[in-house]
Design a protein around this nucleic acid. Sequence first.
DNA 1: GTAACCGGTTACCCAAGAGAAACTACTATG
DNA 2: CATAGTAGTTTCTCTTGGGTAACCGGTTAC
Lengths: 125, 125
Amino acid sequence: MAKINDNGTLREANCSEELMAMRDSLDVLGGKWKLMILRFLTNRTHQIINFKKMQREIDGISAKMLSKELKELETNLLISRTEQQTRPITVVYAITEYGKSVLPVTETLVQWGLSHREKIIESIK
Amino acid sequence: MAKINDNGTLREANCSEELMAMRDSLDVLGGKWKLMILRFLTNRTHQIINFKKMQREIDGISAKMLSKELKELETNLLISRTEQQTRPITVVYAITEYGKSVLPVTETLVQWGLSHREKIIESIK
DNA sequence: GTAACCGGTTACCCAAGAGAAACTACTATG
DNA sequence: CATAGTAGTTTCTCTTGGGTAACCGGTTAC
């Protein structure tokens, strides 16, 4: 992590830049639901996903929050919203190519969550 | 991501487990400051970090929030708090071995934040 | 003695987050 | 004609997050 400069001093000037980059990420991806939604859509790229389906399958999310978060994700070009000209009208949500770039983030969170749960369970034994 | 079962159907039973794992992660690591603090301490493992230093160097954090978040991180064994028997008394905060396991998460967030910023800048041109 | 450092805590307050439930509008099914 | 499904929006409310500022006790340097 820490790098040594030519003169032997420690280089940490980029630390604040790192923290700023992380702040940027958290501003766009932070909150209770956005990463959950992105992960869900990433897992279902081959399925047609509409509003009610997400509401049913993402545990605990309300219609209001889902609606709000979907709008914000669409604004940031992470997901797409497509109205199908069927009757009744249906809407398809999908992850965009750009949205797929978030996959490493959700992946590390899933992995950490799994190992964290293991740790908690072991600490109880 | 999606796997195919022996019978040809798509296997997605583990999706909800993934989302549950992510929910676990977000419960422990979510919020405005926790990942920022962990990243900061990860970057400074070779330095002695005390309260005021963090307050000065983590942009925008207040003493109240820093105090609160540090307690929660300590409870979850992600950081350690050590009082030095100096005069005046000083306190050293450091990341634990377990806290280091969060590094992949902060790393992907930093990387995504950097590329996101590039994308925004390019979209303005 | 007084200003400034450390390591916080406490009180106050506002805004945002977030849930519940009702409601709109349309369509298809029984 | 009633029920249920799609796709949300609106209203109402409560809680939480989070910022400001004052404050505590102690120590050291001027």
